[in-house]
Design a protein around this nucleic acid. Structure first.
Length: 508
RNA sequence: GCAGCUGUAGCUCAGUAGGUUAGAGCGUCGGAUUGUGGCUCCGAAGGUCGGUGGUUCGAGCCCACCCAGCUGUACCA
């Protein structure tokens, strides 16, 4: 070649120029790529959930990722900040469209639009990506997957109870037996309490919402923190101040009495709640509904799995009755060994008003949503055996020794594929060593080698890479390693399929 | 949005009170070994020191502003 210096400097200037022009490959924050292991794990999980939902008689339905903005929420995007919270954009005709941020609002739209054609109660499930334009955090992404089941057109709390039992069965199917709890509460009780302390009426809606959010943070900031948020406000450790709901001490005490009404068992909790809501008609209705749910669950397999917890409120406004939350009961730590606050991995409740937005008559509905991405992250952090069994099998690699014999190699590959064995021909341009490295990196169970020597004998070499790796532990020098050709044997061409099967059988 | 912390190679990080050509480990690629993945050894590629401006004879280091990331918090229809 020419003068290396000259070549180097010439190459460098060129590369520098090129580099500054090049796009930087980067992923927007809060979004992730998923590799083969992640996909296999997620698919396994989705399949388990789907089986449970099917068993309960729910049918599949899919709606698009994009909806008219007004179908998702109450208002059009703020002209100045159209992407606040959701991702929104305008169609050709200037109508606002948004990426869905949950699967409930699109279902309500679907049911309303096809109301007359659907059997009622309509029971359906669906999974898919949803999008939120919010600050991401551990286990929180801007695109994530949910798996929902809903019963529309059934006002009975039997529908709510069924949803809870199905949520429990789903967690069992995911191998989380004894490691989760489905918490149930009823919005009407809290509404009753708020009514009783003078927070009823439309003009107090904002204040009621603040109370809901304060209670929602109970497990994070404790009763004292909640008390501050119910009153004047709270200063957190970072010095950030959150304005409170402005309740007086008596009112706050009343709310806190409600959240701490949980007893040793359902009967005790219900009795405590009766006392707390004394005098509120709406509250009494809520307790009665909870009592019915308890009656359907107590004494069954679900007694310890589905529990009444008055501190569960859910942040959303649209819930009108029973609300549910699925929570993991084991501690989760991240890669650095630090504890991670996972919160709930699923939630739901009754939303009797949501379909009614599109129709003149009210339509009762209840449903449950599993945060697939978050639950998957939790399962991965605890090395769940459910995911371990989902490892994809890597292909057998047929190596290319003689460039002009590609047709022969292709025949080997085809024979393996016909036998249902994942196989591929090496399609790169490198030599044998690189091909071995490639196969190793792919995780191939074995490679097929046929050079001129083997071809003349009508044979192929099969090298078992898994056994070979074990053998390498005993071998010190490379000379020895290469001479020994560990875990390698020769078979007639006609016996390739059977020989590979034998190798695969050894490693599964 | 608010607050704190952090930005040096693909990754994890050194970088001495401002002082020549900014380093290491891992990873990547190549060679020793033109037909054998591991180990070992040798070598190479890879950097606008987050950006801009300022102080200085001189800035990866000091100052200002900006940007990005992380953590907490708020919001999350």
């Amino acid at each position: 070649m020419s003068n290396p210096d000259e070549k180097k400097s010439a190459g460098k200037t060129k590369a520098d120029k090129k580099k500054s022009d090049k796009l930087k490959a980067r992923l927007p924050r809060g979004l992730i790529d998923r590799g083969p292991q992640d996909l296999a794990a997620a698919n396994t999980m989705l399949e388990k959930i789907r089986e449970v939902y099917e068993l309960y008689g729910f049918e599949a339905v899919e709606t698009p990722l994009i909806e008219y903005t007004d179908a998702l929420g109450k208002f059009l995007p703020d002209q100045d900040r159209p992407n606040e919270g959701v991702f929104s954009f305008q169609d050709d005709d200037e109508q606002w469209l948004s990426l869905r941020y949950d699967l409930t609002a699109p279902l309500a739209r679907y049911v309303a639009e096809n109301f007359d054609a659907l059997p009622k109660p309509y029971r359906s499930y669906r999974s898919g990506w949803v999008f939120r334009n919010e600050k991401p955090g551990p286990g929180r992404f801007r695109q994530f997957m949910q798996f929902d089941a809903d019963t529309v057109g059934a006002a009975s709390v039997a529908a709510d109870a069924e949803i809870c039992m199905m949520a429990a069965d789903t967690m069992e199917a995911l191998g989380l037996s004894g490691q989760y709890v489905i918490k149930v509460n009823n919005r009407k009780i809290l509404d009753g309490v708020m009514e009783a302390i003078g927070l009823g009426g439309d003009d107090k809606a904002g204040q009621r919402l603040t109370v809901l959010r304060a209670i929602d943070k109970l497990d994070k900031i404790g009763p004292d923190g909640v008390r501050d948020l119910l009153g004047e406000g709270r200063m957190d450790v970072s010095g950030d101040y959150t304005k409170g709901a402005g309740l007086d001490e008596g009112q706050a005490a009343r709310v806190l009495a409600f959240t701490s009404a949980g007893g040793g068992d359902a009967q005790e909790t219900l009795a405590n709640l009766d006392a707390v809501i004394a005098g509120s008609e709406r509250g009494a209705e809520g307790v009665a509904e909870l009592r019915e749910i308890a009656a359907l669950i107590t004494g069954t397999d679900y007694t310890d799995k589905v529990v009444i917890d008055p501190a569960v409120v859910r942040g959303l406004e649209y819930y009108t009755g029973p609300v549910f939350e699925a929570e993991l009961t084991f501690p989760v730590t991240n890669e650095d060994g630090l504890p991670v606050r996972f919160g709930s991995v699923g939630g739901g409740g009754r939303y009797d008003g949501l379909v009614g937005r599109f129709r003149s008559e009210p339509v009762p509905a209840t449903g449950f949503s599993i945060g697939v991405s978050r639950l998957l992250a939790a399962l991965q952090l605890v090395d769940s055996p459910i995911l371990a069994q989902a490892k994809p099998q890597a292909p057998v690699v047929v190596m290319v020794m003689e460039r002009d014999r590609l047709a022969d190699y292709q025949k080997f590959v085809a024979a393996l594929r016909r036998a249902g064995i994942r196989a591929e021909l090496y399609l790169g341009s490198s030599g044998m060593k690189a091909q071995m490295k490639y196969a190793d990196r792919r995780g191939a169970p074995c490679v097929i080698i046929q050079g001129s020597d083997e071809r003349e004998r009508g044979e192929v070499q099969i090298k078992d890479l898994v056994e070979g790796a074990k053998a390498s532990a005993q071998i010190e020098t490379n000379e020895e390693w290469r001479a020994a050709r560990p875990a390698q044997f020769s078979v007639p061409e006609a016996d390739i399929v059977q020989a590979v099967r034998d190798v695969l059988a050894r490693h599964t």
